[in-house]
């Protein structure tokens, strides 16, 4: 069964690495639903957040192939219930609508929208939330003349993760330790016995 899965990739800062990772998806004809690159908790280390709709088994294989890339430090993949995630959206709405229609203003307020720019002709609002909330708001704004809309990539924090600090320390040691080679499968291998 295909699920929404969020893949978190910690990497070195290297030109071309994005392509090296992206082609692993396109090679299998997997569409990347969302992609974000950002700094991580550690200086010089980057964090890619990639969302795909795929079977977990496929993502597991993909994750290993990503982790194998020379400049990749660590890869995690998680279901939505294992992460805290947010997306951000910007909405450009005609200014007169807001002035005339109180319910639009209320709609935006209830949805936690914040005005970013206010001009005579239009207003730009921002919301941060989950995909559904954003989609709902878009649907409800449309009848009032939504001029422009854009949604950002997903960013996500893994609930169970302790960050990459300890692992990095290990990476810097000569020999890798247990957590480094740690992998869901290795510790669960009994569950995949072929019988």
């Amino acid at each position: 069964m295909k699920n929404e899965i969020t893949i978190t990739v910690y990497t070195e800062n290297q030109v071309g690495l994005l392509n090296r990772i992206a082609i692993l998806f396109s090679r299998r004809k997997i569409n990347i639903e969302s992609l974000n690159t950002s700094p991580s908790e550690l200086e010089g280390i980057y964090r890619f957040t990639i969302v795909v709709l795929e079977e977990e088994e496929v993502v597991r294989k993909l994750a290993r192939q990503i982790e194998k890339q020379i400049d990749v430090l660590k890869v995690y993949f998680n279901n939505n219930d294992e992460i805290i995630w947010q997306e951000m959206a910007l909405y450009k709405v005609p200014a007169d609508i807001i002035a005339e229609k109180v319910k639009v203003e209320r709609l935006l307020r209830v949805n936690g929208a914040r005005a970013v720019v206010i001009r005579k002709d239009y207003i730009v609002f921002e919301t941060t939330g989950q995909r559904e909330e954003i989609n709902n708001l878009v649907a409800r704004l449309e009848p009032f003349g939504l001029i422009e809309f854009v949604r950002s990539a997903r960013i996500a924090i893994i609930k169970a993760s302790a960050g990459i600090h300890d692992q990095i320390l290990e990476f810097e040691e000569k020999l890798p330790g247990d957590t480094l080679t740690g992998n869901e499968f290795l510790n669960k291998h009994k569950e995949v016995v072929t019988e």
Binding site: R60, K61, R64, Q65, E67, K68, T181, N183, F185, L186, H189, V192, V193, T194
Partner: peptide
């Protein structure tokens, strides 16, 4: 590690 379980599931992976 990417070869383990790629095509055939291993009962015991000896990395």
């Amino acid at each position: 590690p990417a070869e383990i379980d790629k095509n055939i599931k291993a009962t015991v992976p000896v990395w």
